[in-house]
Nucleic acid binder design. Structure first.
Length: 117
DNA sequence: AAGCTGACTATGG
DNA sequence: GCCATAGCCAGCT
């Protein structure tokens, strides 16, 4: 892993990044799924918060592939623009209607199942 | 040091 | 079916 972070800052943030980076293009996942995979479970907010920190140019974390449980682009406004997230997803053949991922159930990528720890 | 906030989720009314 | 409340944990003021 890239110890680009500061010394001693090893936190679940890197765990989140690692999982998000493994999300295949054209797929999406939810905060809760990642949180549960990391053992945070109900603390899906922490995952979202990790995404907030993932906005740094040093990270290659496709945070746009992470949406809420409804498949809604809740964090779209945090990408520097309210349409950035949608455009990124559309560029990966993911259809977005009304800030929501179409066929979210089909595109959903569960780390707990796909990564088979 | 203590309290608030937050890119969520589940439950209740 | 929609609105309100509670639980969650880590970072910031």
């Amino acid at each position: 892993m890239r110890e680009t972070s500061m010394p001693g800052s090893a936190s679940f943030f890197e765990n989140v990044y690692d999982v998000v980076r493994q999300i295949p293009a054209g797929r999406v996942t939810s905060y809760g799924a990642i949180a549960e995979y990391l053992g945070l479970r109900g603390s899906a907010r922490m995952v979202g918060w990790a995404m907030n920190a993932a906005q740094t140019p040093d990270n290659d974390v496709p945070a746009h592939r992470v949406v809420n449980r409804n498949g809604m682009l809740t964090g779209k406004h945090h990408f520097g623009g309210p349409l950035i997230m949608q455009q990124l997803l559309e560029s990966e053949n993911i259809e977005i209607i009304d800030d929501q991922v179409v066929r979210f159930g089909e595109l959903f990528w569960d780390p707990a199942k796909e990564l088979t720890s």
